[in-house]
Simulated scan of single mutants.
Amino acid sequence: MHDIILIGFGNVGQSLFKGIQETHEFRVRQIFVRNKDHADLPTSVRVTDNLQALESADLYIVCVTDDAIEEISKNLPFNDRLVVHTSGSSAVSSLKDQTRAGVFYPLQSFSRSKEVNWKEVPLCLETTLESDLTFLKKLGRALSDKVYAINSEQRKKLHLAAVVANNFTNHLYFLAESICKDHNIPFEVLHPLILETATKIQSMTPYEAQTGPARRNDQKTLNSQLQQVEGTALDKIYKLLTASIASTYEREKL
């Protein structure tokens, strides 16, 4: 049985805890939090708010905000144990003063209100030592069927792509929901359309899956909708995305 210590217990830390405890080869031995009054702390493992009191373990997973990674790393009472962070945008070098550093980045959106199926979560791994990557892959495969060796530069670009594909898209859902609310239309009417697009790009490229008035160069519809969004938060966004789609498929008109 391999012992793991979680440093931080936010959305990622809590989900990791549940996933790790369900494996047969790994267990969470201890959790570090800044505030021991944290409402969601489990009672089955030891908890500390003192980095100097961290116990010996095979792996330390830093599940904190990007801005806090370096501070946590510098204050660890050791520098020769395997320490990884879970950030998509921070390089492995952000783990300052650690000779055995790595990244265990789960490419997923985590919410406390929704359980994650770890078997479907892509895990992007990196270590400074090749021998540590073997161990990290063992943990990754115990959790997920999708394990990838991704370096810091690749992961930074992957995180950018994830922000575009997930965070920006979700904000567009919010704007679409606002339109529906303003006109007494149930947002759920759009659910099948949203699901169909998400399903379609698993068997088609996004380029092939694109539809809509900008793809068709339907000027009548575009002009009508531009009038509807004029002066609203959607105005610039609609124009920018329409121009991007139009330029992407411009060659098809030739």
Rank of each mutant, 00 (worst) to 15 (best):
His38Met: 12
Lys114His: 14
Ser15Asp: 11
Val12Lys: 00
Glu71Tyr: 11
Pro122Tyr: 02
Pro77Val: 06
Glu55Ala: 14
Asn79Ala: 13
Ser94Ile: 11
Lys114Pro: 05
Phe26Asp: 04
Ile69Leu: 06
Asn75Ile: 11
Tyr105Asn: 04
Ile69Asn: 06
Pro122Trp: 02
Ala149Met: 10
Leu136Glu: 00
Lys137Asp: 01
Ala101Phe: 03
Val47Cys: 08
Arg100Asp: 02
Ala101Gly: 12
Gly8Cys: 09
Trp118Ser: 01
Gln21Ala: 04
Asn50Trp: 08
Gly102Thr: 05
Gly88Ala: 08
Gln98Arg: 05
Gly102Asn: 03
Phe26Asn: 03
Ala68Gln: 12
Leu16Pro: 02
Arg100Val: 03
Phe9Ser: 02
Arg46Ser: 15
Leu82Ser: 05
Asp132Pro: 09
Ala142Ile: 07
Val92Gln: 14
Tyr105Ile: 07
Leu82Gln: 01
Glu126Gln: 14
Lys18Gly: 09
Leu125Pro: 00
Ser56Tyr: 12
Lys137Leu: 06
Ser93Trp: 02
Thr99Leu: 13
Gly8Met: 08
Phe26Glu: 02
Phe110Ser: 01
Gln21Glu: 14
Pro42Thr: 08
Ala57Glu: 12
Asp67Cys: 10
Val28Ser: 05
Ser113Trp: 10
Lys74Arg: 15
Lys36Leu: 11
Leu41Cys: 08
Leu51Lys: 08
Ala149Cys: 10
Asn50Lys: 13
Lys114Val: 14
Lys146Gln: 14
Ala57Trp: 05
Phe135Met: 11
Ser15Pro: 05
Ile61Thr: 05
Asp145Thr: 13
Thr43Cys: 14
Glu130Gln: 11
Val28Asp: 03
Phe9Asn: 03
Lys74Ala: 14
Asp145His: 12
Ala68Glu: 12
Gly10Lys: 07
Phe9His: 08
Leu95Glu: 02
Asp37Val: 13
Thr86Gly: 06
Asp80Val: 06
Ser131Trp: 02
Glu126Trp: 04
Ala91Thr: 12
Lys18Trp: 03
Gln30Phe: 08
Gln21Met: 13
Val116Asn: 07
Leu76Ala: 08
Cys124Lys: 00
Ala101Cys: 12
Phe26Tyr: 11
Gln21Val: 06
Arg100Lys: 12
Lys119Arg: 12
Ala91Trp: 05
Ser93Gly: 07
Ser111Asp: 12
Leu82Met: 09
Gly19Ser: 07
